[in-house]
Design a protein around this nucleic acid. Sequence first.
DNA 1: GAGTGGTCTAGACCACTGA
DNA 2: CAGTGGTCTAGACCACTCA
Lengths: 256, 256
Amino acid sequence: MPDGNDAKASPLRTKATAGARLGYTPLYLQVRQDLLDRIIAGTWQPGMALPSEQQLASQMGVSQGTLRKALDALASDGVIVRHQGRGTFVAEHDQRRTLFQFFKIVSDENGRIPPETVYCQVSMRPASETEREALELGKDADIWVILRHRALNGQVALVEDIVLPADRFPQLDTKVPLPNNIYELYERQFSVTVANARERLRAVRAEAPDAEILGCAEGAPLLQIERLAVALDGSAIELRRTRCRTDRFHYISELR
Amino acid sequence: MPDGNDAKASPLRTKATAGARLGYTPLYLQVRQDLLDRIIAGTWQPGMALPSEQQLASQMGVSQGTLRKALDALASDGVIVRHQGRGTFVAEHDQRRTLFQFFKIVSDENGRIPPETVYCQVSMRPASETEREALELGKDADIWVILRHRALNGQVALVEDIVLPADRFPQLDTKVPLPNNIYELYERQFSVTVANARERLRAVRAEAPDAEILGCAEGAPLLQIERLAVALDGSAIELRRTRCRTDRFHYISELR
DNA sequence: GAGTGGTCTAGACCACTGA
DNA sequence: CAGTGGTCTAGACCACTCA
């Protein structure tokens, strides 16, 4: 058993037994954060099984019910995945997750189809001011810029600029050609797990270079998607701008 | 106590005590459905308080923990709202909910601002085939069509076509002028509660009529949003097409 | 201070998986 | 059939709201 005594009778429990008004955090949220910290630190790698509820509960000195609430919270955030009868696993950026959670463009006829990368180029340059601000970078930070063209149903439909902080992705250029599933690359090669993202959508005119790549007229309407992706530890990790033809595709959004 | 013996020792409990392989539904989900049915039936109106957990649990013959899981599920679906120390309430389509859950267009400078209706027209006609299909209507069904122009920061920015099944909204035309918050109208006047919606986004060219309304050039890029809204009982209730300028506004989408 | 939802516990039993 | 997560219970106590 390699998972021995690393957090026994933990120093948590801010229980506020008396009138501690502010700053009260329920035990299950403290447990949640403790587990999340260990996942971020790499104690359990993506795809690996966590110890069983019983083991974790007794290790951390809490009841199984409390531990379960912590795991439920992590599961609803997509950090872990639970399978009845099998165990609890650190969530992975497999094909399925990338396609459903992080790819919102759908074919009008075929529904969800995985995009195929048809062109990819990597370069480095100093970050602009807006890039530094969005990615929370220091004054002289460098960034990687990835340019990709991607096809759906065999038709080039997307042009992407991806911006990454260079220091979090050392020697990215040696990984060329980059795999189709780039978040899997972040995860496996650089230990960076994308947890969630916010997107801003606009309709824009196709400028000449994009029009040529996408095979549409200059001035045609394109859907522009600006994404800021956030890592497990809450830091901004990727800035992405996608321009997309929407004559045979559309972007889906669920309001709940 | 007006909420007497209406569901005592309920006929639920499909507990599968023996090897009932398929068709097993956990008790808390049965309770959830039972409560949802009563909300749909209007036993508790939007904004009203439900009985306390203790009362509901003993009424329905389940433990407080099980009842709580059912309420938690309804709360995470946005059907009810819980307030520690105050009670549990049927969710309402107030200004706040409409603005945050069902309005995704944001000003580049000001952030979230409520849109202002500057033009509104209501008419009735037979449903087209695609409308019948989307709204699950019969052969000769009629629909209401609402045309609206809406302004953000004092600038006309949105053109909307809203399609509703006529039989669910009797005498809608007598409610003109429609209030700004139209989901509140559905709820209060027609007992129709919008629960969630799916949207399809595209970039399109501004045609002449929209260009004039929005004050932009013909052929300018517009963001087109097609929405299908679903009621509490799961039926499709509204089809909506919005066209929007995105030179000073954008659409936000959260990926989690 | 009474009443509400929120947390925490301890234990029993059930459904599912895989060797 | 052993081990895992999922459900269900009963009861204690805590934090919050409002009269």
